[in-house]
Design a protein around this nucleic acid. Structure first.
Lengths: 197, 197
DNA sequence: TAGCGCATGTAACGCGTTACATGATTAC
DNA sequence: GTAATCATGTAACGCGTTACATGCGCTA
């Protein structure tokens, strides 16, 4: 008896990962934007949930353009560098739609701080404590920012359009998360400040 | 006028990132383990906060060994493949300690679901909704698991040793997170099920 | 006889970060 | 004179994922 193994490779476009691309396409849904503007956009709204550096964005845009998911218009400027204004193509929005409809598994949020906690008792707790205190402050600041945005633009979520409700929900997730982290920091500080054992 | 640029590169060991390595070292604090056992370990406790596949782990172990942070003992077995049992070296635990004392910025938890929410109003909401419902179930299951562990081993955190308090706090963070996500899912389902607009 | 558990690995490839690079204009 | 803003990029490198590979023993 013998056995023949046949290996066939279908190197299809990997639409499943490449999430930055999809985040960019999403940002382009509402507005045509340049790479520079996208990078700024990612520093605020969308970037709360998906960080990206300008280097990454320019690389992605190049790829998105090569794949025909976005089109470019070069805008000549004087006194400033020229711009490249990107917009969604039909193919692009179709691809985005397909992606939205695909399932995505939640990726375990990796946080080194939790790994560090496993070192309590082996390493100096005060160092970990001071890091948690710092974290607490960060979460407080973020929470305040999110709440401010909520107050300004999303006071009555039920009256919003579907699209704005989606954005509100992303914000709401951020608020809950920061709130939870904040409370955790307080619990952690209390528990680690107790008389040692 | 001219200008001479001198570029010096100090390619020091990058101790700042490489977090999987540190997670492995942390796991080795308590026990000597094989790669296989580590992979299983990462499927439970530590892995709640830092996922890793066996491929990654074997690669990291190789590197950790080359750097002298762990030592190996080959264990000959019959009927099964041999094992390689790893243990922390003095250098390894020192390096770990240095890492713990370094600051780590919280990495924005990337979640594609939030990006997808920005597509509400452009793409089919029902698809997003059903994904949120699925998420809800996942969070419920995780929460139950975490609570079970809490009940079993961490009922009175204040009486625990420092080391166990650290682990409890990691667990507590997990509980809060799942709880928060769960509540968010409920809010989202309610808001997106409303009469469309 | 098919599949799972044990146990270890290699290879390919994409994502993400950091460092480096340019060059004009405007504001302090 | 210094720094920030506008605007675009390249290169190097490590992290993470997926696919592929091996091979014995036990159990349903």
């Amino acid at each position: 008896m013998f056995c023949v193994k046949i290996l066939l490779r279908f190197d299809a476009l990997d639409t499943s990962s490449m999430s930055l691309s999809h985040a960019i396409l999403t940002a382009l849904l509402e507005d045509d934007l340049t790479g520079y503007e996208l990078a700024k956009q990612f520093d605020v709204t969308l970037g709360f949930f998906w960080r990206a550096s300008h280097q990454q964005i320019y690389q992605s845009l190049k790829k998105l353009h090569a794949d025909g998911w976005v089109s470019v218009e070069e805008i000549i400027q004087t006194g400033k560098p020229n711009k490249r204004l990107y917009s969604l193509t039909t193919l692009g929005s179709e691809t985005l739609d397909i992606w939205v409809k695909q399932e995505t598994k939640p990726r375990a949020s990796k946080d080194e701080l939790y790994v560090k906690l496993y070192n309590a008792g082996y390493s100096d707790v005060n160092v970990i404590l001071s890091e948690i205190r710092q974290r607490k402050q960060i979460h407080e600041e973020k929470l305040m920012l999110y709440r401010k945005i909520e107050q300004r633009h999303y006071r009555e979520p039920k009256t919003l359009s579907l699209h704005r409700r989606g954005i509100y929900l992303a914000l709401a997730a951020g608020i809950r998360q920061e709130q939870g982290c904040l409370e955790w920091c307080e619990e952690a500080i209390e528990l680690l400040t107790l008389e040692n054992n």
